[in-house]
Design a binder for these strands. Structure first.
Lengths: 188, 188
DNA sequence: GTCTATATGCGGATAGAC
DNA sequence: GTCTATCCGCATATAGAC
């Protein structure tokens, strides 16, 4: 979640910054002008890269899912580490990512803000949570049967997302950190 | 969460309906016109009851917290029931309330949509979660020490709120229902 | 690829008649 | 208390010059 070093395309840089603004201010409360200011672009120039505002967010969410997959979820499938080590490493990375820049999870935010009347973002966000669940499940499977590992993974993700909610509401990390702790204790 | 029978004031009826629209469509994506249509009022008439849109939501959230407290959270403090009975009754009521009308929790939605840049709704939503936590903690205390009961209550609420998120994302109740199940198993 | 100008509509909110 | 009319600003998006 820190700014990408160069070698990234202009479009990728825009998606990166846009995702951060959307996460903090919400979809409907973020204007093209807000994004333009943050990106150092003129309003109209967004429509050169993206068809419209929805498409911009949609592509940003996909880009971010890719980032999470490479930087976080893939840890679960690394060779040469024990389940406990992979769990701790992945949850430690999860912690850094969700605490970045005042914290929060754009996937959860967008889901709760729009899911009821707009299905456009649903598939890409489902893809994010599918990958996350698969990763945790894979780790938990070294200790539990597949069905049980799946349940534990879902429970951990729910606990973490609920923790992020309370963290933002009470401006206190503990709820989120406790959830991470519990997710790693599953492997004890 | 079903419509209130009459004997409620016009203002209460408005808050009730408005909360439902806000929950489904989000704060910024709900216009005064949307609310007016749903309430059978003219746009301008809202400003007779409420100072502005923010005040309308703020009062609605307070009204709803009151409703939850009376109908759900107070179950924890009823006389003549065992902890297990109170837990099951309270969680069963929780289930009905959050599954109503396509489901979702307006407190979580508004927090994630606005908490980063608008502190106005924070106190009333904190009050909601405080009351919920106190209620669950009180039930769990018949089996756990206060500190442990507090942790279990927070964990249950996080699990439930994360479950509501996944329920809405995947259009599948199971995540939410599993969380309720786990919250009641704490008492086994 | 980048910028200026602008179309067009809807948002929240108010004034004031009845 | 209720309704009509309306102000004003900002939103998304496009046209088109350079």
């Amino acid at each position: 979640m820190t700014e990408p070093a160069k070698k990234y395309s202009k479009k990728e840089e825009i998606m990166w910054i846009a995702a951060d603004i959307f996460r903090q201010n919400g979809y409907h409360n973020t204007s093209i002008s807000d994004l333009a200011k943050a990106c150092g672009l003129h309003n109209a120039h967004f429509y050169y890269y993206f068809k419209d505002k929805e498409n911009l967010l949609e592509e940003s969410l996909g880009y971010l899912t890719n980032y999470f997959d490479k930087k976080v979820f893939q840890i679960a499938f690394q060779e040469g580490l024990s389940a406990k080590e992979k769990g701790i490493l992945m949850l430690e990375t999860t912690k850094k990512v969700f605490l970045h820049n005042q914290g929060g999870c754009i996937m959860a935010n967008i889901t709760l803000e729009t899911a009821q009347y707009n299905t456009r973002f649903i598939p890409v966000i489902q893809n994010f949570f599918n990958k996350w669940t698969e990763a945790l499940k894979h780790i938990y499977q070294e200790k539990y049967q597949p069905q049980k590992a799946q349940e534990k993974a879902e429970q951990a993700i729910q606990d973490i997302e609920g923790g992020i909610l309370l963290m933002r509401l009470y401006r206190n990390d503990k709820y989120f950190l406790n959830a991470l702790q519990r997710a790693s204790e599953v492997l004890n």
